[in-house]
Design a protein around this nucleic acid. Structure first.
Lengths: 118, 118
DNA sequence: TACATACTGAACCATATAGTTCAGTGTCTA
DNA sequence: TAGACACTGAACTATATGGTTCAGTATGTA
């Protein structure tokens, strides 16, 4: 039996880095949708929307199925699982590496005169 | 007082979409590091590494500070917080939209003859 | 059968990304 | 002070991305 392997995090994080695609996910959370209805909702050409959906599909976040002339898009189960796991595992590191005074000082500098520039 | 506003998710998800940058985060989780040491570790030119660090910095995941001739990079507190929140909020949707039979069928089709192609 | 609908694919464009090399600048250290 | 070290910036390359238009193909409907 073929086991579906989660696409690399590269693809899913890249998919999530676009606000339109995050919006598509929101939308699909409210119900499955065709390419056309998504294109209308996001004021984009069909072709443009199809590309976004393909990106989400390759990233393993969305599945589509064509019935007749309509391709219906829906969220894929286990979508975001690997991503959530990576992030949760690493958030601990972020918190752990924190040293209060240092951080406050370096952030103040960053916000102010931007000492981080050369 | 200046409030640091979390950079848009676009920037942080894009930053996380590169395996080298996720590796840098892993590395910084083990301890702060200079650009040179990271460049060595990832077998990359200094200039190349500097660019990756800049991407992480603009995404609000890393802070850097230059002391003398050495720029030290460290994980930024609250890094990944907004990202984790977005993902957790949406995972619920993914699970909720799941309908067992449909999903199994469409995934089997996807894995097999790839019905999703035109 | 004829027309409309829903998608598909090729081609193009502008911009961004991931990397490089090379030529600096500024900071230690002997 | 001379040389090494750590970075910085400009410029260049190849490829990817986000969008478009235009010309199809396949399907549903009057």
């Amino acid at each position: 039996m073929v086991q579906y392997v989660s696409p690399p995090l590269d693809l899913s994080f890249a998919a999530l880095s676009d606000a339109t695609r995050r919006g598509i996910i929101d939308q699909l959370g409210r119900g499955d949708a065709s390419i056309t209805s998504l294109a209308d909702k996001f004021q984009m050409t069909l072709t443009g929307m199809k590309k976004h959906v393909q990106v989400l599909e390759r990233a393993g976040l969305v599945v589509t199925q064509k019935v007749g002339r309509v391709r219906t898009c829906k969220l894929r189960k286990r979508g975001l699982k690997a991503e959530a796991e990576w992030i949760e595992a690493h958030r601990k590191l972020f918190e752990a590496r924190f040293e209060a005074l240092d951080e406050i000082i370096s952030e103040m500098k960053q916000e102010g005169s931007d000492e981080s520039a050369s």
